[in-house]
């Protein structure tokens, strides 16, 4: 066992602490900067301890939005991003669980063709099909809408493949037992498949929520109005604000606020996720 001798414990801990410092320090420094005045930030070196502007900076960013970032408050940006991330995560899970269900449990003509069509989309990242997608969105009048932000990102081969792999591990006898027990396709899906997929859904939700939250290129293209910006886009716009000096203290606050929802999702879902893992052990 590692950790038997004191020296080993020491080395192991030293390595861990070093790792955490490397990862956590930039985030801590961002937090420190978000509690200073603009003047302090612009006059290096930046102190290593938080300043006294925490309340001022955060309330200004959250509630005093007028006149900055094109007049949009951080609250609005967070709302936009949340809607988009939730929409992408839920939409992807919904679509992919249904398509995986069809591909694994039903026999229909061209089943494998459909599977391969889905599979092939893995090789086409969003960036490659961005021009045609943009054209379609323009034609459909979906620029500056939540639907325009969400729908093009929903089609997901990855999640479909994950569900397919999981569904294929479900023993055939279980499916047959359900048939003998009088469960039709819908009953089987809702009563057996969905509860058994809980852990997979939780894991995918975490991954996809963060995927949606951190999207950059697509929201940049599909939103023109500042009202519809996501927080990542807004951050970028704040930094390269042409008409005035960059409000670094507010940029830092916004960055801090942008991290909070993904962290919340990870922390909250993790508990659920671990419990689910233990429960579904057969």
């Amino acid at each position: 066992m590692i950790g038997q001798s004191p020296l080993r414990v020491l080395i192991a801990h030293a390595a861990l602490i070093l790792g955490i410092l490397i990862v956590a320090f930039p985030i801590y420094y961002t937090f420190v900067a978000s509690t200073q005045t603009l003047q302090t930030i612009l006059k290096p070196p930046l102190p290593l301890l938080p300043g006294d502007q925490l309340w001022n900076n955060y309330s200004e960013a959250l509630f005093g939005g007028v006149g900055r970032i094109g007049g949009v408050s951080v609250g609005r940006l967070l709302l936009n991003t949340t809607v988009m991330a939730l929409g992408v995560a839920v939409g992807k899970i919904f679509i992919s669980i249904l398509s995986a269900y069809a591909i694994v449990f039903f026999r229909f003509p061209l089943r494998m063709t459909f599977f391969w069509l889905i599979f092939i989309t893995l090789m086409l990242p969003v960036e490659v099909r961005i021009l045609p997608t943009y054209k379609v969105m323009v034609d459909l009048g979906m620029i500056d809408t939540y639907a325009g932000l969400i729908i093009p990102l929903i089609a997901s081969a990855t999640a479909t493949l994950l569900f397919r792999q999981f569904f294929m591990t479900i023993p055939g006898e279980l499916v047959e037992a359900a048939r003998v027990d009088g469960a039709g396709p819908w009953r089987f899906f809702f009563d057996i498949l969905l509860p058994l997929s809980r852990t997979n859904i939780a894991a995918l939700f975490v991954i996809l929520f963060i995927y949606g939250w951190t999207q950059y290129l697509w929201p940049l293209l599909v939103t023109n109005s500042n009202d519809m910006n996501t927080i990542v886009i807004a951050l970028k716009k704040m930094v390269s604000f042409a008409d005035a000096d960059t409000q670094w203290h507010l940029v830092m606050v916004t960055a801090m606020l942008a991290i909070v929802p993904p962290i919340l999702v990870v922390v909250l879902m993790q508990r659920w996720f671990v419990r689910g893992l233990v429960e579904s052990e057969k």
């Binding site: 006898e173 047959e176 037992a177 359900a178 027990d181 058994l196 579904s280």
Partner: peptide
């Protein structure tokens, strides 16, 4: 379902959840 039979499987096939 309509045959009115019941089956006991080798691996029991109990619904784990």
């Amino acid at each position: 379902t309509e045959r009115d039979i019941a089956m006991v499987f080798q691996n029991y096939a109990l619904y784990p959840h």
